[in-house]
């Protein structure tokens, strides 16, 4: 058994939400720089340059990359030999968010669905917990903006639709979304599982660093095919035309019910923010 005090978790989450919002990860910056070289539209290239400039200002001045500092999603992998001490785990995670959003001057973007009354501290947090072998604790902290989340879609397709049907739905969703989710986007695609599992897969797929290949060569080629199809639409940076509609398409796939073909598309804006905490 390895003991981890929950106070350490709160402290790490507090730093993580601030860092995620002030600093774009190098893989995203590289993808933006590479896209700027390849983009066919002059205005598109200028917009991509503005994103790189925006990231530099945010990092230097400790001002959020985007005013939408997100609803916080966490993927937690907890080793089964970890023993948490000093308090409640979920409370510790939320306390980290509460402190980070206050001390980092991040926007509190969470409210009651109908009264729209703000909760005031950016909680609650969406937590996905997996128990794994070993004594490590890994927490991915992912503040996710509302604009790209609103354009995300879930389809319960008929098995006859096949990969072509999946591709068609996703491409159509990107056409429909147009400029709304702040392109260039990153596409997280979950295929299989069931109604809720494919949605979780689609979000988890966004955590894979850009520029890395899918470990499954067959799925890797599906990702390439999808990205190519999406970038042919012409939405471009900010929907003002061009060849960079998405920076990457990441797919996670698992078996599903014999009657179903569940597909979820989680769209991530170019301000893709996540930080991994390792204990």
């Amino acid at each position: 058994m390895r003991k981890i005090h929950v106070q350490n978790i709160t402290d790490a989450v507090k730093d993580a939400v601030m860092n995620a919002n002030f600093e774009l990860n190098e893989d995203i910056l590289k993808a933006l720089r590479d896209a700027k070289e390849k983009e066919v539209s002059a205005l598109g290239r200028d917009i991509l340059m503005k994103f790189i400039e925006n990231a530099a200002i945010a990092k230097k001045e400790k001002i959020p990359l985007c005013q939408d500092t997100g609803l916080v999603v966490m993927f937690v992998e907890m080793g089964q030999d970890v023993m948490l001490v000093g308090g409640d785990f979920y409370t510790a995670l939320e306390e980290g968010v509460r402190q980070g959003y206050r001390e980092g001057f991040l926007r509190k973007s969470v409210c009651h669905p109908f009264t729209r009354k703000n909760t005031g501290d950016n909680t609650p947090v969406i937590i996905h917990l997996d128990v794994v072998p070993g004594n490590d604790l890994k927490i991915w902290v992912m503040p996710k903006g509302g604009g790209s989340e609103n354009m995300s879609r879930l389809f319960m397709l008929s098995p006859s639709a096949g990969w072509d049907g999946v591709k068609e739905r996703i491409v159509q969703a990107i056409v429909d979304a147009g400029p709304n989710p702040c392109p260039p986007t990153i596409l997280g695609v979950g295929i299989g599982g069931n109604f809720e599992q494919c949605a979780i897969l689609s979000k988890r797929a966004l955590l894979r660093p850009l520029g890395t290949s899918n470990p499954d060569p067959e799925i890797d080629s599906m990702e390439q095919e999808l990205l190519e199809a999406v970038n042919k639409i012409g939405v471009g940076p900010q929907g003002l035309g061009g060849s960079t509609t998405s920076l990457a398409a990441h797919i996670l796939m698992m078996p599903c019910h014999i009657a179903s073909l569940p597909v979820a598309l989680n769209i991530q804006c170019h301000s893709s923010r996540h930080v991994r905490i390792d204990f």
């Binding site: 200002i57 005013q67 604009g147």
Partner: peptide, 13 residues
């Protein structure tokens, strides 16, 4: 009019 979405730090200037 559209402003550049996701360039909040830049636009603050």
């Amino acid at each position: 009019m559209a402003a550049i979405g996701g360039a909040g730090a830049l636009l603050a200037r």
